[in-house]
Nucleic acid binder design. Structure first.
Lengths: 338, 338
DNA sequence: CACGTAATTGTTAGCGTTCACATTGAACTC
DNA sequence: GAGTTCAATGTGAACGCTAACAATTACGTG
């Protein structure tokens, strides 16, 4: 029989099998330099013969390091958070860390705190909070000290919480300036929900670009990221006079705008130019293909892990603030004003 | 000072503070019935006073249960996997479990095995493999015995691996029959990559529905889930004679088809009807809004956890096979044949 | 009022690993 | 060839918790 006992083999079993002490097995497993090559070989052979797998839980107990990072996020179904988490997971695994995820349904000070507490009990070495909303960011302020934390897409005033984010203001400026350069008198804006930092940044960038160029600043239309809200806003805009350029705070709302304008027979980009934000994979195939601002979420994820691991390894370090620049993608939903 | 030592308080500290034994503290923490109410209160007070958090790692070492589930998935950026994982995470947390995620870049027998091994070392109590590809499914066959495993969206011949999936064949039949009922002579199909089980299921369902109705079965066009592949296929279809109805294996490819037809001036649905699969949030606002098959990924995620927990709690149980029925959503990208 | 029974609490021994230190033996040095 | 050094290995004690059992207390009952 290949299964002498139902119990999984432990280090002592390997030690006995290889004729060494359990400590030597430990050294082999942890690549300690002072092990004779033939001893190492003998141990490794015993390990494969027994099918031994080390118990990382026991290891974590004594080292006080679980090699697990926690991620707290809101609605991981959305393209942005999903992509960021993907980047985080890849970078973490490359660095030899596991990732434990908590996705929140509602994001408020309490739930973020609870999530971090939950992860703390589990013994994570650090936490990334994908926190694009104000309430989440304010939750960061009240986090237990000592736990290394990085905020992705958030902001905070705490000196011991680092931040990695994409320059939303700059992205919105790119979008707005592009439209102005095409000869549009001004640009209308469909904003995201006010609770989101990204909404705020894009709103600011849009306003700043208009003011820089001394253009009138129309009242922004309030959206909620959903295509439906873009659709409603699109219908409102079509009913207004003199609208020739629209900057939607994300691609999904831009899609709604395209749909509304299409339904009403308003040609895009001939009569109205439309710009989005995110560059989701679908944008290139909207009708017409969407001009938009591209965010590299992968890079954000990787940076988060870098910053977090630095904090874990070298201890409480200085506040870091990493800003990733977005890029601009011109497609055919924008055209010069007539 | 509120911080007498830099060391975090442990159970023994709480016990001393409350004037009881550490075991009593343990009992309070684990809701053991036989603890006097006033003792419980005293312990709880000590816990809050000291800011004690229990160490789940130590607990896991002795109970041999980590209350963590592993999830292995491929490209969590895609809508399907992302939604499934979201469902899994919510259900797991409700049941008091953590979720540790590994997203694979390439999915083959080796990488799935490695991922499961990795999670096993970490001490997860069970694993969900979101495995929509054949190679992932075959990897399930060679998994170490003893670890409770559930395959989401996969299939396997192993009697000790349960499966939760959406009835792809049925979904494709719904789509195809709808088009036939609208008077179309036959239906063209843009398939997903051959490696995927879902591609296969949808292809089968489409073919079966046509054969049931004694219709000619056109050669399917090969796509890869991306909007671009749908776009290419759409151009090919537009160049062919007699094409009046198209069933794309997912919404993104359907979007590509809509784009291609739009570009070439082929009216949808007047000349060609288009159906997708997935019902992504954007589909409702495509031009025109897409008729599609809705998959409830949330339900799949929840079922996975139910099945997995049953396997963990009651031990190796019978092979379960849970099939979730998709529903059909009619929008304006389909119309009766002229 | 002594006694059995049940509720409540304490004691001891691990879980499987790593850490700190002790021990061995071989290789140098002068 | 005795003393020194360093590489290689072993020994025992944690890490913080729960399981199993032991001990104590309280309560009713004949």
């Amino acid at each position: 029989m290949t299964t002498p006992k139902r119990r999984l083999p432990v280090m002592a079993d390997v030690a006995r099998e290889a004729g060494v002490s359990h400590q030597t097995v430990s050294r082999v497993l942890n690549d300690h330099p002072n092990v004779r090559p033939d001893t190492r070989a003998r141990v490794e052979e015993a390990i494969t013969r027994l099918g031994y797998r080390r118990n990382l839980v026991a290891r974590a107990l004594v080292t006080k390091r679980s090699r697990t990072l926690g991620v707290v996020s809101f609605d991981t179904t959305l393209y942005g958070p999903a992509s960021t988490i993907y980047g985080i997971e890849q970078a973490a695994r490359t660095a030899g860390y596991f990732v434990s995820i908590v996705s929140l349904k509602t994001i408020d000070t309490h739930s973020v705190r609870d999530a971090v507490d939950y992860l703390t009990e589990q013994g994570v070495d650090g936490v990334v909070v994908v926190a694009p909303q104000y309430s989440a960011s304010s939750a960061l302020e009240s986090l237990p000290a000592g736990m290394p934390v990085v905020a992705a897409e958030g902001t905070t005033h705490r000196a011991d919480v680092s931040v990695v984010c994409i320059d939303q203001v700059e992205g919105a400026k790119l979008a707005t300036r592009h439209l102005l350069e095409q000869g549009h008198e001004t640009v209308w804006h469909i904003s995201g929900p006010p609770e989101w930092l990204e909404s705020e940044g894009r709103l600011q960038g849009w306003r700043a670009a208009l003011e820089e160029a001394d253009r009138p600043v129309p009242e922004p239309l309030a959206g909620d990221w959903s295509p439906r809200s873009g659709y409603e806003a699109g219908k409102s805009l079509a009913a207004m006079d003199g609208v020739t350029a629209v900057f939607a705070a994300n691609d999904q709302m831009a899609l709604g705008v395209l749909r509304a304008l299409g339904e009403l027979g308003v040609p895009v980009p001939e009569q109205i130019s439309v710009v989005g934000f995110d560059d989701i994979p679908e944008s290139e195939f909207f009708s017409p293909p969407l001009t938009t601002v591209r965010q590299d979420f992968d890079v954000v994820g990787r940076h988060c892990i870098e910053v977090l691991l630095r904090q874990i390894d070298v201890g409480p370090t200085a506040f870091e603030r990493l800003v990733v620049r977005p890029s601009f993608v011109v497609r055919s939903s924008t055209a010069p004003a007539r």
